[in-house]
Design a protein around this nucleic acid. Structure first.
Lengths: 336, 336
DNA sequence: AACGTTGTATCTAACGTTGTAAAGAACCGG
DNA sequence: CCGGTTCTTTACAACGTTAGATACAACGTT
């Protein structure tokens, strides 16, 4: 039941190329011819075979978005914005879930439906600079922390500044034993390091000494890790009076652990997160957090990719910084 | 920098077809020839052009998953399972976000990268039976409530039974003024209707009369809608002592509204949801809910689609029911 | 009336891959 | 060492589309 240009051409009594011209909006087609062709197209419910078109044109109209995990709210929200922004360019987005492992990420970066995608927006976790080297020029925009200095276009937010601001906010509430949850020593933990640096900087500015015992690592940044890390902190020698969690899901887990320990938030312990996911606006208490402009991030990434595709593929890579704000809610309000 | 079979063939000193044979694992290739070809492939970093392959083979290796919204946790979790299940069949999943509107859904169902996908797994909200009619046989599996009796393969859970069970649980706790949040009158509200029917059935079984005033509609099923509906119920004449929310995000919103009203959960009002999303395991309090077997749903859908693609495309449509359980947590525990 | 100019439609050759058929090489038993 | 298998490789023709060249009208100009 699938028809080809040829079928339409026969039905309309014209050549294949004429039908192609109509489909592609070529100007010099006589109105009555055009009408006849369009009617034939409608009657046969013709749709172009994109594989064939792509083969011919070298463009697919599909870009890929490679993310560590789809069911991490931050990535899901980001994905929505990317899909929306891409639609404005007439692109379909193929979403690829890498799982964050190095092997899968390498495969995603180089392999996703080879020649099936025009470009890639990629939020790597485990990928290193070396991995990026062998990608024979697939147009690519990286999200998040820089993996490699200037090998590809890049969209990020100022993690250090954001972490510093939210930590400073906690200090501004008079808290002195400010813990951090989410540190990572792995090379993948680029975000973790930047946010830790911002945390440390804010402590220094507030004349609070950095205390190892208040910095809790988290293997992944899920709710369960946040809860576990919080329990660990509570069982340690120094009872924190505030916690900066390196993302919101960690913070939600921490809230849970604090609740189970019978501590009040923010009275006993103030809590802050990072990402501004939807959950944090309805959690009990609602979550103070860093709010990156996700829509902006998505749009910048898509536009950057568009520029690469339309223009000079060998132009020097660009790095864009998207804005962020503090969203102050109940878990660490403006005034207590 | 992109190479073709021809380039590999020249470098290895063989014909194009021999390279193709090696790439496709054809048996009768002499070991040394194979080795030579493989080396050439490695040296040139050759990757097949999938558009060309698809054009030739008529198969793309890509299936689409069309969902209303990616940042609804239930769909995000489902998407992850579908991607995993599809990977076992060697498929890539193109995730399409329809937004749930009729126009976009129609487009998604008929249009996504035409000829770019082998089949479609589709979770429709607004689509009607008529819309499904004009899809010239794109292999498709529907998720969720049946749109049309037997026009396409279908995977669902027993919504009526599940809603009845969780409502019965609330009644079993001794609650008598059990409210429902999430009713919808639109044709899209198929799930809403089934869950409402289950709710009503459970009330009848428990000899509780159905009270209009305890049934709150929700235009969408987001957290904000749940909170608004809960506030509305609390301001009404009848103060509920339990609430069954038609999904978990509604329930999380309801928890928030109850908290703001100073009511304790579950002591004053027990709360139950539907979907068993990750959030509900860490919310305060944790959420009692219906837990559909999402992994099973995804696997059944993918397998059903695989059957369609490999086998008889005109076989009568099948409807499969995936299991569900009750996950009883703090918001409506087993015993109070 | 012959001319270029423009508008309209067609013809041919790709794009990179794989299925088919067939050719050539190597091997077997007699 | 012949005839027949089996193994190995190749040539050719598609798959459905579009770019480019080309043919043919129709037009206004000289």
């Amino acid at each position: 039941m699938r028809h080809r240009l040829k079928d339409v051409a026969e039905r309309a009594g014209v050549s294949v190329k004429t039908v192609s011209n109509v489909v592609n909006g070529y100007l010099h087609v006589r109105p009555d011819t055009r009408a006849r062709v369009e009617q034939a197209i409608a009657e046969l419910n013709y749709r172009p075979n994109l594989s064939a078109r792509n083969l011919r044109k070298g463009r697919t109209g599909v870009i890929a978005l490679a993310l560590p995990e789809l069911d991490i709210p931050y990535f899901a929200e980001l994905a929505r914005h990317v899909v929306t922004a891409a639609a404005e360019h007439g692109w379909t987005v193929l979403i690829d879930q890498t799982g964050g492992g190095p092997e899968q990420e390498r495969k995603a970066a180089s392999g996703i439906g080879d020649h099936m995608i025009d470009g890639l927006i990629f939020s790597p976790l485990a990928l290193t600079a070396d991995d990026l080297a062998g990608l024979d020029g697939m147009p690519m925009v990286l999200l998040g922390e820089r993996v490699d200095h200037g090998r590809a276009d890049h969209v990020m937010i100022d993690n250090v500044a954001a972490a510093r601001q939210i930590t400073a906010h906690l200090a501004g509430l008079g808290r002195r034993r400010i813990a951090a949850i989410g540190s990572q020593r792995t090379p993948e933990g680029a975000s973790a390091r930047l946010r830790l640096a911002g945390y440390a900087a804010a402590l220094a500015e507030a004349d609070i000494s950095y205390d190892e015992r208040l910095v809790a690592p988290a293997p992944a940044w899920h709710r369960a890790d946040g809860a576990a890390a919080m329990r660990h902190l509570l069982s340690g020698g120094v009872r924190p009076d505030a916690v900066f969690c390196f993302n919101d899901t960690l913070a939600l887990g921490a809230l849970r652990a604090l609740h189970e320990a019978g501590l009040r938030v923010p009275e006993d312990v103030a809590v802050a997160g990072f990402d501004d996911i939807e959950d944090g606006r309805f959690s009990i208490p609602t979550l103070s957090t860093v709010a990156p402009d996700k829509e902006r991030i998505a749009r910048l990434a898509v536009d950057l990719l568009a520029g690469r595709l339309d223009g000079d593929r060998d132009a020097p890579p660009r790095e864009l910084v998207a804005p962020h704000q503090l969203a102050l809610r109940e878990s660490a309000p403006d005034l207590i």
